[in-house]
Design a binder for these strands. Structure first.
Lengths: 370, 370
DNA sequence: CTGAAAGCGCTAACAA
DNA sequence: TTGTTAGCGCTTTCAG
């Protein structure tokens, strides 16, 4: 005839000799409860180390579940598809805990993102995850959102002037520093190197370039940066400018490409017969780069962990929304170093390119953990 | 008088004009159902894109909830405390979905782990996560467990001969390869280098050494390995042997330490006035190494991502147990490269050392995502 | 102010 | 072979 031991909120109710309704009121700071009762209940809860069962909570609140909006560029090659994968994988998990997601992909970084953001705001989400392509236009919107209690997490690209709750990224400056240190250690003292940037007008590219410039001379005594060129993300322009640079600067020992657009640079090196002679450090990773690693054209690439950025951003937001966990204001990941020895371990190389499909991400889904 | 639209399994039952019990049977391949009915139900489920609500499932299965045993070394410095953190953080999350954890820390890797494993088996767990210190003794036990349907996931250290369901690790051979490539690229052709191993009798250390030996000459033309010494994880021995080596081999250009025990090597370099002159590549990361990075004694360290290994191993197991997800047989993480530019981004350096407390991991818990 | 009870989607034990 | 039902822990609503 022994009574089974109850759990959670029931247990508390039992110990406090009240009903579960009262416990609920105490736990959630709702009104309609005497302060004394509340204190007593809270004390008991603390004593037995009560933790709410999130599954039960999620189940009970199917309709009232938290909603998260996501706004990221769609470009399916390079970087953003991996970022999306991380986001979607983690979103699928959190969906099990009652968090709902609303996706508003934009065509390219910074393109039309204020509109997408506004739409998300209008659709009554509780949080927004966004790659802030144009911080200028977005910042006031972000501030407005935060004002209304909608938490904003920036991922990969920051809007530092805004009051966003959190940023998840690899800092561009550090990224450049690491490249600089690596280059400095690869090369003998007094080496001449050059930088191929996308466009220096873009903050990220400028900061990466700065980081490299700060760091390289520290690790390569007497080394100097003989040139900085802008490829403007254009294949032909990048090729031409690099080709020209290689002709112009004699004894160039190293080249740092801080944009994803490194293939034309590889080709220019090949055309000059300098592949493998000039140390090349690139940024990011995608399948077409593999042969250049194997041939020794690319010495190393600085990897920004897109999958993990997406995963962490979603997790951060969802944790906050479901458990009232505090939102870590900054999560700065360490950039990875890709070389030919570990190339095969990266998902960009390992997984055959998979089409991005927001509707039905479940199908043909390969479990992934990197 | 309109009927509310039901969800999930109820919805299917409605459409198929059967009861939810039957649907459940169909979905889970249980018997006691006519094949025709099952097919019909499965088809409908597919059509409406049914996804089980894991929160509900978890809630329903609290008593029958999956139980996971964890057996890892306790040593709180270096590596394993980070591995534990990853495990505990992820375990706490999965606890919300009804997965229970049983911890059986052992004093040191391979010490007494067969006993711990047996205890876990006896306590009726559904899965075991273990760092397989002595694969020899463990393999038959692992096979027996798998035979009984208890899935075993090895983490960090493998038992390759066993039938464990999965392994999560950084492959030691690749680890050595990366060190070799890095060293090869740091040094001019024809350089002489040496390796400081723990004990070559340990498979992991031997494989790292092999990887390094395979890889280094490929990236340093004419380079050769002038010596391999064993420190046996002993501070004094490591110091003495390194000190002696540095005196014996003239013009040694690089040193690769493939055990965590790198401080004595740093000191020996200092004592010979060679700190910063001889390129030093180490393994793993802990707070006391920081000054040696900053002074340039350590050029780089190969980081084995302990936190993430723990996280992924638990996740793999828990996913399998809750969703019948397939257990990816191998998860090989890419080793990270630590240099002074990104040193501060690693949790070992960033987080003040925190005591390991299995009882009450929640308290003084800092949310972490790296 | 407090208690009682319904229901979230799923599992498992028992009835038919 | 199939249907029914009692929870799992929490939120919410309606009575007292």
């Amino acid at each position: 005839m022994e009574k089974k031991e109850r759990r959670g909120i029931h247990r508390i109710a039992e110990l406090a000799s009240v009903s579960i309704g009262t416990v609920d009121r105490a736990l959630h700071g709702r009104n309609g409860i005497r302060e004394a009762t509340r204190q007593r209940i809270l004390r008991i809860a603390r004593q037995i180390g009560y933790t709410p069962n999130l599954a039960a909570r999620a189940l009970s609140a199917v309709k009232a579940g938290a909603r998260v909006g996501v706004c990221l560029p769609r470009e399916i090659h390079f970087f953003y598809d991996q970022l999306w994968s991380g986001v979607l994988d983690e979103a699928r998990r959190m969906a099990q805990l009652g968090v709902q997601f609303e996706y508003r992909p934009v065509r390219a970084l910074g393109e039309d993102d204020t509109r997408a953001f506004r739409q998300l705001l209008k659709s009554e989400v509780n949080g927004i995850v966004i790659a802030a392509g144009n911080p200028g236009g977005l910042s006031p919107l972000i501030d407005a959102a935060e004002e209304k209690g909608v938490r904003v997490v920036c991922v990969s690209t920051d809007a530092p002037e805004s009051h966003r709750s959190s940023i998840v990224c690899v800092e561009p400056w550090r990224n450049g520093c690491l490249a600089g240190e690596l280059m400095g250690k690869f090369l003998p003292p007094k080496s001449k190197v050059a930088v191929v940037a996308g466009m220096l007008a873009a903050t990220d590219h400028r900061k990466k370039t700065d980081g490299f410039s700060d760091s390289f001379p520290r690790y390569c005594p007497g080394g100097n940066i003989a040139g900085i060129i802008e490829g403007h993300e254009d294949e032909d322009e990048s090729f031409q400018k690099t080709f020209e640079l290689l002709g112009r600067v004699p004894n160039l020992a190293g080249l740092y490409v801080n944009t994803v657009n490194c293939l034309p640079v590889c080709r220019a090196l090949g055309a000059r017969g300098l592949a493998g002679k000039v140390r090349l450090i690139t940024t990011d990773l995608f399948a077409e780069m593999a042969p250049y690693f194997q041939r020794g054209t690319i010495s190393a690439s600085i990897y920004q962990q897109p999958y993990r950025q997406g995963q962490i951003a979603v997790r951060l937001m969802a944790d906050h929304l479901t458990s009232k966990a505090s939102l870590t204001p900054t999560v700065h990941l360490s950039p990875g170093v890709v070389m030919s020895s570990n190339l095969q371990l990266f998902r960009e190389i390992r997984l055959a390119p998979v089409k991005l499909n927001l509707r039905n991400h479940r199908s043909n889904h390969v479990p992934s953990h990197e």
